[in-house]
């Protein structure tokens, strides 16, 4: 279970033109809840604040204000305990290239407090689910982006987390690999995990998400099922919601 209540986050950035520092508000008062057995889709254009929100949930960043509870644990106060319940996948398609998937999963299992033998067994099971079993003992330096992403997914799920946070899990993947990832998310849901996914891919959201939240300029617009969102905005696709938000902004409405 994820419970986010009115979180804010801002960054100091350097304006290269004026050479002065300015404060950017990346997240502005976002609140949402992801229940067990639910997939929550976080949508939004680049720079909307999706990754920042997910990083705060994963305990990698602290919110300036507001609270985040993961399985009843305050991720700001007890980040290590909170992280032990989270499987986090970042946008990077990077892995430790010198290792084989088996070695990596065993090591990360130990990092998460899982016994090495158990981690190896679970890792191989996950690799099998992701159609990667035959590459378990191959050095990852020659892997494609999709193969690396699958190993990263296995790495994120190795400690059997109750909460799954995937930041743009299908970006850069071919259709078949993307489908494998989506199927796995479906299994995560069926197993009763709380899943939160950020993406640009609207058909993916419509296919697997129980609820969606659209982030635009750090603010959450709508927090409902894809159907309810479409009805509320009186549009046929989620893409059109984006266009309307941009148009509203240009008119000074949003």
């Amino acid at each position: 279970m994820i419970q986010i209540s009115d979180i804010y986050k801002s960054f100091n950035v350097k304006d290269k033109k004026s050479r002065s520092r300015m404060r950017i508000e990346a997240v502005r008062g976002i609140s949402l809840t992801v229940k067990p057995g639910e997939i929550y889709g976080l949508l939004g254009p680049n720079g909307a604040g999706k990754s920042t929100t997910l990083r705060m949930i994963a305990g990698l960043m602290l919110p300036d204000a507001g609270t985040i509870q993961v399985c009843g644990i305050d991720s700001a106060k007890e980040p290590e305990r909170a992280r032990s319940t989270i499987g986090y996948l970042s946008t990077d398609l990077s892995v430790y290239n010198r290792f084989t998937p088996r070695e990596l999963l065993k090591l990360f299992g130990e990092f998460q407090g899982v016994d090495a033998a158990v981690a190896e067994r679970r890792g191989l099971h996950l690799l099998d689910r992701l159609h990667m079993a035959e590459f378990a003992d191959v050095k990852m330096e020659g892997f494609s982006g999709g193969q690396k992403q699958k190993v990263s997914i296995a790495r994120a799920l190795l400690h059997d987390p109750k909460v799954v946070i995937f930041d743009e899990p299908t970006t850069g993947l071919d259709v078949l690999t993307a489908k494998t990832v989506l199927d796995l998310l479906g299994i995560m849901k069926a197993e009763g995990r709380s899943v939160i996914v950020s993406t640009h891919v609207m058909p993916m959201v419509e296919a697997i998400c129980d609820r969606v939240g659209i982030i635009f300029e750090g603010t959450l617009h709508g927090d409902a099922s894809p159907r309810e969102i479409l009805d509320r905005w009186k549009v046929r696709t989620l893409d059109e919601v984006f266009f309307q938000l941009v148009a509203d902004k240009e008119r000074g409405v949003a």
Binding site: R83, Y88, D92, Y96, F111, R155, H159
Partner: peptide, 14 residues
């Protein structure tokens, strides 16, 4: 640079 630090930081090791 290699983009692996986040995976390390997302574990429960302080």
């Amino acid at each position: 640079e290699r983009g692996t630090l986040l995976s390390l930081l997302s574990t429960s090791i302080p």
